[in-house]
Design a protein around this nucleic acid. Structure first.
Length: 466
RNA sequence: GGCGCGGUAGCCAAGUGGUAAGGCAGAGGUCUGCAAAACCUUUAUUCGGGGGUUCGAUUCCCCCCCGCGCCUCCA
């Protein structure tokens, strides 16, 4: 089956292709760096990571650009409150963002770009829109006139014709011709950061940065544009209106949107007290790899219910996978004979790939892996898992982990060294052989105190860090 | 009001016009010096409710109930 993605533009699942057959020109909306990113943001970024990895797995070369919005109302307010420059204020959260995505093992895009470093390009784009008659000025600001862009609403599938100003116009929006018009360049306000321009002193509107940076680095037509579902309207709709008014070409061929996550069945919000950042969860003792696993395990277009029960559940589930890998790595299997699991292994890989090809069905992909794990464990118990089965099984886990990236435990600092553990384990094996069980148990407890769990299996003693 | 999404076992979560993946949790069992790990059996005659189309619907259509999102800043 071909690789397929759900395209918001057509509201259907379509076969994926790129313009040149090889490189994916992908733009994703990154963070607004005015606070630490929350678990909902990270759900979307995790989706983008899975998307990257799967495209890569399928042989595409990625050219992925992610923006960092570092000028915007909330940022300006925060910076002013703290008496800091924009850059001083945003750099804290930008660095924190990079730390967070690293902890979640999210691959870095090929390029991270800041809005404030593209002001001239934005001004240039606004000038082009003005030349094309898509703008009007009002009280020192420049607005985009959506009435001039007939297909406005095609992404969000909104019929804007009947929605005129007057229905729900904010007090501070009275100066627009139409409630849906959006600002391209905001006139300077006293005390706020600003840039001088041919449109007067001011700062850019939010939407223009993405149009400009996407096209600067990726060309006039993107293969994929992705983001959270709430960005569909107005942000992405406005990006289309801006970009296509300038180029008269399709701005993005595939629009992929990740659903929101809920927390304990409710919308995450600060007022409900269920608003979490990665830092919050790590402080509570949750490992980032568990969180990654939870975020990756549900399909990206369904609402994901983030719960602490869910985290516990995934911690156990992940333990099962890692135990299997330990067994596969360290087990002794019958040599010389033919592989007995060849069919099962290739079936599992095919099932995994088919699920991922089908609009990144990670839940289905996981099912294929777990079914294999059960069968392989069963074969190992029965003694029919052959040494020749090891390499194909390894390849399967490697394929899986090249996408999910959860089998490698989080590295801990301090504690016992591997060599010290091995020494104690060997001493215990000798003690057991001599049926000196008191010494044997003593060593088990000693290691447990040091955070090391011992397991005696039919393939020998193995250990793992807690 | 408009547009859109969803309601599948205790919890999480796939899925298909032909008779319900997977994970976690629970129960029983096997194995075991201990402790684990692992395996086996078991847990939805049923997929929010009611109609309809069909030989057959959880899957298609209609209505209703519930939850949610967007329509204004928002991952």
């Amino acid at each position: 089956m071909a690789l397929r993605f759900h395209n918001t533009l057509t509201q259907s699942v379509e076969d994926f292709s790129t313009q040149d057959g090889k490189t994916v020109r992908m733009y994703t909306c990154g963070p607004t760096v005015y606070h630490y990113v929350h678990i909902g943001n990270l759900r979307t970024f995790t989706f983008q990571d899975l998307l990257r990895r799967w495209l890569n797995y399928r042989g595409y070369v990625l050219n992925h650009v992610m923006n960092i919005t570092d000028v915007e109302d909330k940022i300006i307010r925060g910076a002013m409150q703290q008496g800091k420059s924009l850059r001083e204020y945003t750099s804290v959260y930008e660095e924190a963002f990079l730390e967070d995505i690293d902890r979640l093992r999210l691959q870095r895009p090929e390029r991270l770009v800041r809005a404030t470093e593209h002001i001239p390009e934005m001004l240039d784009a606004i000038a082009k829109l003005r030349e094309g008659g898509y703008t009007y000025d009002s009280e020192g600001s420049v607005y985009y006139r959506i009435a001039r862009f007939p297909s406005y609403g095609k992404l969000a599938h909104l019929d804007v014709s009947g929605m005129k100003s007057g229905a729900r116009v904010d007090v501070d929006e009275y100066d627009k011709d139409d409630a849906r018009d959006f600002v391209l360049w905001k006139s300077r306000k006293e005390g706020e950061p600003y840039w001088d321009s041919e449109f007067g002193a001011g700062r850019p509107g939010w939407h223009i940065e993405c149009s400009v940076m996407a096209m600067k680095y990726l060309g006039e037509t993107l293969d994929i544009h992705a983001g959270g579902i709430d960005l569909t309207f107005p942000h992405h709709e406005n990006e289309i209106a801006q970009s296509e008014a300038i180029t008269h070409k399709t701005f993005a061929r595939f629009w992929l949107h990740a659903e929101h996550l809920m927390v304990e069945g409710q919308k995450m919000s600060k007022s409900l007290g269920n608003f979490y950042t990665l830092r919050d969860l790590v402080e509570q003792g949750w490992q980032p790899d568990i969180i990654r696993y939870l975020l990756a395990s549900a399909h990206y277009r369904t609402k994901l219910n983030f719960t602490f029960d869910g985290l516990r559940s995934h911690a156990s589930s992940l333990e099962r996978l890692r135990n299997f890998k330990l067994r596969l790595d360290g087990g002794k299997f019958p040599e010389g004979g033919p592989a007995t699991m060849a069919g099962r292994t290739s079936d599992a890989l095919a099932g995994f790939e088919a699920a991922m090809d089908d609009d990144l069905n990670t839940a289905g992909a996981l099912a294929a892996i777990f079914e294999f794990v059960r069968d392989a464990n069963s074969a190992m118990d029965a003694g029919t898992f052959a040494a020749a089965d090891r390499a194909p099984a390894h390849n399967l886990l490697a394929a899986f982990d090249s996408i999910f990236d959860i089998l490698r435990p989080v590295e801990r600092e301090g504690g016992l060294s591997d060599a010290a553990i091995d020494e104690l384990v060997n001493e215990r094996i000798a003690a057991k052989k001599a049926r000196n069980f008191s010494r044997s148990d003593e060593i088990r407890h000693l290691l447990l105190t040091g955070g090391v769990i011992l397991e005696d299996t039919r393939e020998g003693t193995r250990w793992k860090r807690k």
